[in-house]
Structures are given as C-alpha cells and as structure tokens.
C-alpha cells in the first residue's frame, strides 16, 4: 500500500501554498518518484490531501528533498477543517539522494491530511511521493 499511487484510489491534493505549473502538487500522489512538487519560497509551506473515504492510517511515507521540520495534521470531517496535530518530525538532511521518511501513527482515521513544512535546509523543498499504509 505504501507503494500505491494515492491518486489511483481517488485521493487528491486539495490545496498547496506553492505551484510552479511545471511541478504541480498532483505530482506528489502520482506514485512516480521522478515527478515532484516544488515549493516556491518562504516557509511555512502547506498542502492538504483529501481521501475519498475515511481512511485508517498507520504509516505515512514521504520522499522529499531539503525538508527540515514537518508537521502532519488530520481531519475526520467531510470538509477540510478541524485539523488535529498527529505528528511532528525533523528530517535529516541528505546530499545526492532524496530524503525517505516513514512516520508511524497509532492507527488514526482521516478524511484529510494536512502537511505543514515548517522549515527547510534550503529556500526551496520538493516532495516526490506521499504514501500511506492502512
């Protein structure tokens, strides 16, 4: 499941604070590590992923570059509101390869996940793939 493209079962990116038309937010959930979303300056950066149903989530995986501090919030509402913090983590810096991180959650339910990139190791950060495990 961590390897499945999120968009293949109807997930979508509802909102993102940055968008370069060549690197749109959908690239984070197309299952392809070579395509990515690129932030365009100033932190924090944010994006929200919406699932078609309420999902049980035990692990979130993220492939990225130059993210430093990330906070993940969940909502169980039909609308993207009432977010609660699920996890906050500082990623290690990588050189010459992407950052690969898995974040375990104690089996939370969510209709929406909100990702807040609080800081970076550079002015611009990329997210290549977001995966989840039920």
């Amino acid at each position: 499941m961590l390897n499945t493209a999120l968009n293949s079962f109807g997930a979508q990116v509802l909102f993102a604070t940055s968008s370069d038309e060549n690197y749109p937010p959908e690239r984070m959930i197309d299952g392809n590590m070579e395509t990515f979303w690129l932030s365009t300056g100033i932190f924090p950066q944010e994006f929200i992923i919406r699932f078609p149903d309420n999902m049980k989530i035990s692990v979130i995986s993220i492939h990225s570059f130059n993210i430093k501090r990330l906070r993940i919030e969940q909502s169980t509402n039909e609308e993207a509101e009432d977010f609660k913090v699920m996890a906050e983590k500082e990623f290690e810096q990588t050189e010459g390869s992407l950052q690969t991180n898995e974040i375990s959650l104690d089996c939370s339910n969510a209709t929406h996940l909100r990702f807040l990139i609080l800081s970076g190791y550079d002015h611009f950060v990329s997210v290549h793939k977001v995966g989840i495990q039920a």
Binding site: D20, Y23, M33, E34, T35, L38, F65, D122, F124, H128
Partner: peptide, 10 residues
C-alpha cells in the same frame, strides 16, 4: 535548485 532536484530524482 530545480535542476539539481530534477537530476537527483531521475
């Protein structure tokens, strides 16, 4: 940076 990341993810 865009080019660096592009190369990195290929």
């Amino acid at each position: 940076r865009r080019q660096i990341i592009q190369r990195l993810s290929w």
